[in-house]
């Protein structure tokens, strides 16, 4: 029992954080609590200041609307936070769609679909083009282009305010990830994930691999949603410092040999460490 919890430590904490954030929003909308009001696009915290989705505000800007100062400051706070802790911490610790795609990935492993049907090949860097495209389209269409099609938006608004047909979109993402492409949405297309990958390039919280403890079991490769970033694992002691790391800690959970851990990047010494 202890072992099961220990081996899912970060998973359990992450799911709790994801759930608590959505619950705080629901509590505000149903019972008027004021911890977090609004939703993931923009939220008022403790009735005192705002947070905002920096990517949405950026699209707004490209569409030709200068957001209010509340939103700009809110977006900068969020951006700064993720720039420090690793941008894609949003993905694995906050984004509700992450629960959907990780469940699809898990089921895929369980059903053995990873090996049999994964025959289409799509480059993972396509998401950066989707990111550029969302900004270009926001400019051309004169409204935030990703926000109107975003499955993340539909899911989170659905959870907080009621779904309509919004659940169908989440289901499509789930099925796409399950039967079409491994880590299909988050690993290949999501422009928000791409945005946070760039934002978190220089983050201070990172995962460190210690090759001396590594037994080449490949557990981390099997479970990491972005396995390409583990290129040095089993080869040399190093920081996993790609912006694409979601800081989900699943590799740490599953590593039985204590070869991976979270570290705070020490700005001065990190040369020696690498």
């Amino acid at each position: 029992m202890i072992n099961i919890i220990g081996r899912n430590r970060f998973l359990i904490i992450r799911r709790s954080v994801q759930l608590l954030i959505i619950l705080a929003f629901v509590a505000s909308s149903r019972w008027g609590w004021s911890v977090l009001k609004g939703n993931l696009s923009s939220a008022k915290v403790l009735d005192s200041f705002y947070l905002a989705d920096p990517f949405a505000v950026l699209q707004m800007f490209f569409s030709g609307f200068v957001a209010s100062s509340d939103l700009i400051i809110g977006a900068l706070i969020v951006l700064l936070f993720y720039a420090l802790v690793g941008g894609r911490a949003f993905c694995s610790w906050v984004c509700p769609l992450n629960v959907v795609t990780e469940t699809a990935a898990w089921l895929r492993r369980k059903l053995g679909l990873d090996t049999t049907t994964d025959n289409i090949r799509i480059k993972r860097n396509i998401r950066y083009y989707v990111l550029i495209l969302s900004l270009l389209l926001s400019f051309v269409l004169a409204y935030a282009a990703f926000e109107v099609v975003s499955p993340i938006g539909m899911l989170q608004r659905g959870l907080i305010f009621g779904f309509g047909m919004g659940w169908a979109v989440a289901l499509s993402v789930f099925l796409f990830d399950l039967v079409v492409l491994k880590n299909g949405w988050c690993g290949h297309f999501c422009p928000l994930g791409a945005f946070y990958s760039l934002a978190g390039k220089l983050a201070l919280v990172e995962i460190k691999h210690n090759v001396d403890n590594c037994t080449d079991c490949m557990n981390c490769f099997r479970v990491c949603p972005e396995p390409q970033i583990l290129k040095n694992v089993t080869k040399k002691t190093s920081l996993i410092d790609s912006g694409e790391c979601t800081n989900c800690g699943r590799c740490i959970d599953l590593c039985e040999d204590d070869a991976l851990k979270f570290v705070l990047k020490n700005l001065k010494n990190n040369k020696n460490e690498n």
């Binding site: 505000s28 909308s29 008027g32 009001k37 609004g38 939703n39 696009s41 923009s42 939220a43 008022k44 905002a52 989705d53 949405a56 505000v57 707004m60 569409s63 030709g64 609307f65 957001a67 939103l71 004169a142 409204y143 935030a144 926000e147 938006g153 539909m154 608004r157 659905g158 907080i160 305010f161 009621g162 779904f163 309509g164 047909m165 919004g166 169908a168 979109v169």
Partner: peptide, 23 residues
């Protein structure tokens, strides 16, 4: 362009008049 789709107006309305558009 301007609306960030946060739903604050929806929550604020005491009559539940407003809703955020679903697909």
């Amino acid at each position: 362009k301007a609306c960030i789709r946060c739903g604050s107006c929806v929550e604020a309305c005491p009559y539940d008049t407003l809703a955020l558009a679903t697909p």
